[in-house]
């Protein structure tokens, strides 16, 4: 069977616990379904499909699932990651200060060319805000990373953030592909599926 997508990107959500990483994985947060068997055992990762410039992109988004509480995000978790969302809570100064530590952690464990983005979450809660938008922007400039303020609760910028990160990864990949094989730019992922296609066909003719 032909592949149903053009690109596959593995993304990670990183940041202190309680900043709303898990909520960022929701799109319709108001419909969120709580107090069930699923919320007891937790969610490992999600697959989401988006379309960018006519290309179908599958996003595999991983949540740290509480690992961050022990500050032991392991190399295994970072393996194969192409994009990382660094999330802090605008109502929690400490979570913002820790972004620098998380960047250091990424530099230690993740691949050097991983795309990063900083998200200041819970931007709808203005009355308890501790971190201004300007400080967030300043930090992002300092590290040369993109920045956005989001609200998972009010559905502000969440989808936009994922689109922006995916677009940057796609651009980087296309540049790489152009550099390695300049002529035709067909999706290399399609080739990976060909052997299985052949074997199943062979079985069909025998039967």
């Amino acid at each position: 069977m032909a592949k149903t997508y053009d690109y596959l990107f593995k993304l990670l959500l990183i940041g202190d616990s309680g900043v709303g990483k898990t909520c960022i994985l929701f799109r319709f947060s108001e419909d969120a379904f709580n107090a069930t068997f699923i919320s007891t055992i937790g969610i490992d990762f999600k697959i989401r499909t988006i379309e960018l410039d006519g290309k179908k992109i599958k996003l595999q988004i991983w949540d740290t699932a509480g690992q961050e509480r022990f500050r032991t995000i392991t190399t295994a978790y970072y393996r194969g990651a192409m994009g990382i969302m660094l999330v802090y809570d605008v109502t929690n100064e400490k979570s913002f200060e820790n972004i620098k530590n998380w960047i250091r952690n990424i530099e230690e464990h993740a691949s050097a060319d991983v795309e990063k983005m900083v998200l200041g979450n819970k931007c709808d809660v203005n009355e308890r805000r501790q971190v201004s938008k300007e400080r967030g922007e300043q930090l992002a400039i300092e590290y040369g990373i993109k920045f956005m303020e989001t609200s998972a609760k009010a559905s502000i910028n969440v989808e936009e953030a994922f689109f922006a990160l995916a677009r940057d990864i796609k651009r980087k990949m296309e540049k790489k592909m152009e550099a390695t094989n300049p002529p035709k730019t067909g999706s290399h992922q399609l080739k990976a599926n060909e052997p299985t296609k052949k074997t199943s066909r062979w079985f069909c003719t025998v039967l």
């Binding site: 592949k3 055992i41 490992d44 990762f45 999600k46 697959i47 499909t49």
Partner: peptide
């Protein structure tokens, strides 16, 4: 057969 056939889906912990 392939998890990437899904449009949108979540996977719980093991």
């Amino acid at each position: 057969d392939d998890i990437y056939s899904f449009e949108n889906v979540g996977f719980s912990s093991t």
